[in-house]
Amino acid sequence: MTFYDPDAVVWTLGSLVLIVPVLIVAIRQSGATARAKAQLAREQEYQRLTELSVTAQELTDQKLGEIAAQLTDISARVASVERSLKEIE
């Protein structure tokens, strides 16, 4: 007494042999696609951070130039005050 049909077993195993590799390839490719998207997102974020850093550095340089100009002006004024005080003595 046979509970299974040999032809059905052959068709089932044959189908599995053909379907399983296709599923494995599809899963691997979807994983590779997800990794590529994540890497692209990381690179875009790094690029954005780099642009922010450059902007911040440019603003810092501008402010430093303004401070240097003010310091030069203050130094000239202090020198003028010192000369005036020396003349008064």
Rank of each mutant, 00 (worst) to 15 (best):
Ser30Gln: 08
Arg83Ser: 10
Ile27Ser: 04
Ile19Gly: 04
Ala38Asn: 06
Ala56Gly: 06
Thr72Ser: 15
Val78Met: 06
Pro21Cys: 00
Val81Leu: 12
Glu87Trp: 05
Ile19Arg: 11
Ser75Asn: 11
Ala68Ile: 01
Gly14Cys: 02
Val81His: 10
Phe3Tyr: 13
Gln29Val: 02
Thr33Tyr: 01
Thr50Ile: 04
Leu85Pro: 00
Gln44Met: 06
Arg83Trp: 08
Gln47Ile: 07
Ala56Ser: 11
Pro21Ile: 00
Arg28Asn: 05
Ser30Ala: 14
Ile88Arg: 10
Ile67Arg: 05
Tyr46Asn: 12
Val9Ala: 10
Val10Lys: 11
Val25Tyr: 01
Ile67Gly: 01
Gln44Gly: 00
Ala26Pro: 00
Glu58His: 10
Thr33Phe: 01
Pro21Phe: 00
Lys86Tyr: 09
Leu40Val: 03
Glu58Lys: 12
Glu89Lys: 15
Glu87Lys: 09
Asp61Ile: 00
Pro6Tyr: 01
Val22Pro: 01
Lys37Asn: 12
Gln47Asp: 14
Gln62Trp: 04
Gln39Asp: 10
Glu58Ser: 11
Ser15Met: 09
Leu59Glu: 14
Ile27Ala: 09
Ala34Met: 15
Thr55Lys: 08
Ile19Met: 13
Val22Ser: 06
Thr12Lys: 13
Thr2Leu: 13
Gly31Arg: 14
Ile74Leu: 15
Ser53Tyr: 01
Met1His: 15
Arg77Trp: 11
Ile74Pro: 02
Glu43Cys: 02
Val78Arg: 07
Asp7Leu: 12
Leu64Gly: 01
Leu49Pro: 02
Ala68Pro: 00
Asp7Lys: 13
Ser80Phe: 05
Val25Thr: 01
Ser75Trp: 03
Met1Lys: 14
Ile74Gln: 15
Ser30Trp: 07
Val22Leu: 14
Glu89Cys: 11
Lys86Gly: 07
Ser75Gly: 03
Ala32Lys: 03
Thr2Ala: 14
Thr72Leu: 14
Glu87Ala: 09
Ser30Glu: 07
Arg35Glu: 06
Gly31Asn: 15
Leu52Thr: 05
Ser15Cys: 11
Lys86Gln: 13
Lys63Phe: 09
Glu43Leu: 07
Glu45Tyr: 04
Leu49His: 05
Lys63Cys: 06
Leu16Ser: 07
Ile67Pro: 00
Ser75Glu: 10
Val9Leu: 12
